[in-house]
């Protein structure tokens, strides 16, 4: 699980071009959107593609992403339970 969380942080930094952010800056429980990392709705769509491409999880409705992308911790737990690859 800790490995997956680290992996997610690295992927998010790369995929979303968060150039000034280091893995160590993101706490597992920090909110990804709003006050936390400050991601927005376009990032949410990027993360949906990341779920599909790397973990074989396909979301039909972008609204589902809201709960899943709450934090790195929540996201990792969701991936653990639903991944197909």
């Amino acid at each position: 699980m800790a490995d997956l969380q680290l992996e997610l942080k690295e992927k998010i930094i790369e995929q979303l071009s968060l150039e000034d952010i280091e893995v160590s800056d993101i706490d597992d429980n920090d909110p990804l959107f709003g006050d936390g990392l400050g991601l927005d709705s376009i990032d949410a769509l990027e993360l949906i593609v990341l779920l599909e491409k790397d973990y074989g999880i396909k979301l039909k409705d972008p609204k589902e992403g809201k709960a899943i992308f709450e934090s790195i911790g929540v996201m990792a737990a969701y991936i653990e339970n639903n991944r197909t690859k």
């Binding site: 376009i42 769509l45 990027e46 593609v49 599909e52 491409k53």
Partner: peptide, 9 residues
């Protein structure tokens, strides 16, 4: 497949 929105936007 696996297209992301940022480039399109």
């Amino acid at each position: 497949q696996f297209l992301t929105p940022t480039l399109f936007i």
